[in-house]
Computed example of a mutant assay.
Amino acid sequence: MLVLITAMFLFRSNKKTYTVEDFEDNKEILDKYRKKCENGEIDGDSLNCQNSHKAMIGLSRPTNTGKWTD
């Protein structure tokens, strides 16, 4: 039973974890993950949701020069 639980965890967590900097550098990935986090497709407590949220906050600060533009 423990082997099954461990295997499920490993396969489930096999997705890439993006850093705040990854999200700040790539608006498409940021937008994609923000949508998934907001609609519940990804657990809001996941590291990707936390990092994408931090990136959004960082990019919205008036003193930030921004890494991408619309």
Rank of each mutant, 00 (worst) to 15 (best):
F11G: 14
K36H: 10
T63I: 11
S52G: 01
K32V: 00
Y18D: 07
I57G: 10
I5T: 14
R34T: 09
Q50M: 02
S46T: 03
C37G: 01
V20S: 13
F9I: 04
K36F: 03
S13D: 12
T6L: 09
S60H: 07
M56E: 13
F9R: 15
S13G: 12
D31N: 13
F9S: 11
G58W: 07
S60F: 01
S52E: 03
T6Y: 13
I57Q: 15
K16H: 07
T17H: 12
W68H: 11
M1F: 08
N64K: 11
M1C: 02
T69C: 10
I42F: 07
L2V: 01
N39A: 06
C49T: 06
I42A: 03
K36S: 08
T63F: 06
I57S: 14
M1S: 03
N39C: 09
L10A: 12
K67C: 02
I57C: 07
L47A: 14
D45K: 13
V20W: 14
D43R: 15
A55V: 00
E28S: 04
K15A: 08
F11T: 15
L4P: 04
M1N: 06
M8W: 03
T63Q: 13
R34Q: 08
D25V: 00
I29S: 10
V20H: 12
L2C: 07
D70R: 08
R12T: 07
D45E: 10
R34I: 13
E24M: 12
S60D: 10
T6G: 06
N39M: 07
T63M: 09
R61A: 05
N26F: 02
A7C: 13
S46F: 00
L47V: 05
F9A: 09
Q50N: 09
L10D: 08
D22P: 00
I29V: 11
G58C: 06
N14Q: 12
F23Q: 04
C37Q: 00
F11L: 15
L10R: 12
L47P: 09
S13I: 06
K36W: 08
T17C: 09
L47H: 15
T6F: 12
T63G: 10
N48G: 01
P62W: 03
K36G: 03
F23E: 06
R34W: 13
A55T: 01
A55R: 04
N14P: 05
D70K: 08
T69L: 09
A55Q: 04
H53V: 11
W68T: 09
T69Y: 07
E21H: 08
M8S: 08
M56W: 15
L4W: 14
K15H: 14
G58F: 07
F23Y: 10
L47I: 06
I5Q: 13
M8D: 06
L10I: 02
C49S: 02
L30E: 01
C37A: 02
N64I: 08
I42G: 02
I29C: 05
L30R: 06
V3S: 05
A55P: 02
